[in-house]
Computed example of a mutant assay.
Amino acid sequence: MAKKIIVIFTLIVLTICILIGGCSNPVEEELKTWKELVNILPKEKEKENEKENENESNNIPTDFVIEESIDVTLYFATSDKSDLKSEKRTITKVEGLGRKTMEELIEGPQSPEYVSVFPSGTSLLDINVKEDGLCIIDLSSEARFVNNANEEMLMISAIANTLCQFSTIDEVAFMIEGESVSAIGGFVDLSEPVSAE
């Protein structure tokens, strides 16, 4: 009877071994292999990512846009405010080039030999270029604080000379705080638009 039990037990063990693919456990080996692959794959992915990053740093992105620039001439007063002098400046070429140029003019000169033609605190409120070549400039109320006719004339001439360098602008008319004016500081008649000198 003991022999029968041993034979039956041996047959059961052999049957189990045959059903699972032999006496060694290939499922465990297969799992070990998958675990190794899982560990290897992230390392391979990291290497691929490093190569992609290297390639990206060596190549210029397709959506990279090189900004165009343009040279403009701005007019500022000499230090004794007796005359206007030109100063070249390179600015980014934008759609509102007149506005950008006026903002540069109001910002003031880069050269220490020149001074701004605007009273302190003056800002550009609006600029409108008409199809007929008329440019309407709207300045803040600080522009009124010129000390004399010479300062007012320098400011008006600097604006007209700076803006009329563009082919789309022939004349400049002035507004203060959204109101049309016939004079800015009360010294120079601006009832008619002015052009570059």
Rank of each mutant, 00 (worst) to 15 (best):
E68A: 11
E68Y: 07
E68F: 09
S69V: 14
S69R: 15
S69W: 11
S69L: 09
I70R: 12
I70W: 06
D71E: 10
V72W: 02
T73R: 09
L74V: 02
L74G: 03
L74D: 05
L74K: 06
L74H: 04
Y75D: 04
Y75W: 08
Y75N: 03
F76C: 09
F76A: 04
A77Y: 06
A77E: 06
T78G: 11
T78L: 11
S79C: 06
S79F: 12
S79Q: 13
S79L: 14
D80P: 05
D80L: 02
K81C: 11
K81D: 09
S82G: 15
S82C: 11
S82A: 15
S82N: 15
S82I: 10
D83S: 14
D83C: 07
D83G: 06
D83W: 08
D83F: 10
L84R: 04
L84N: 01
K85R: 10
K85L: 13
K85D: 08
S86W: 06
S86G: 08
E87C: 06
K88C: 04
K88A: 10
K88N: 13
K88R: 13
R89A: 11
R89I: 11
T90M: 07
T90L: 05
I91P: 07
T92K: 13
K93V: 05
K93R: 12
K93G: 06
V94N: 08
V94A: 09
E95K: 14
G96E: 14
G96V: 13
L97I: 15
L97F: 09
L97T: 11
L97Q: 12
L97H: 07
L97N: 08
G98N: 15
G98E: 15
G98W: 10
R99C: 09
R99G: 10
K100N: 14
K100L: 11
K100T: 14
T101E: 00
T101Q: 00
T101H: 01
T101A: 02
M102E: 02
M102F: 07
E103I: 05
E103H: 04
E104K: 08
E104M: 09
L105I: 01
I106W: 03
I106A: 01
E107T: 14
E107D: 14
E107V: 08
G108T: 00
P109I: 02
P109M: 03
Q110M: 12
S111L: 07
P112Y: 03
Y114N: 03
Y114D: 01
Y114E: 03
Y114Q: 02
V115N: 01
V115P: 00
S116H: 03
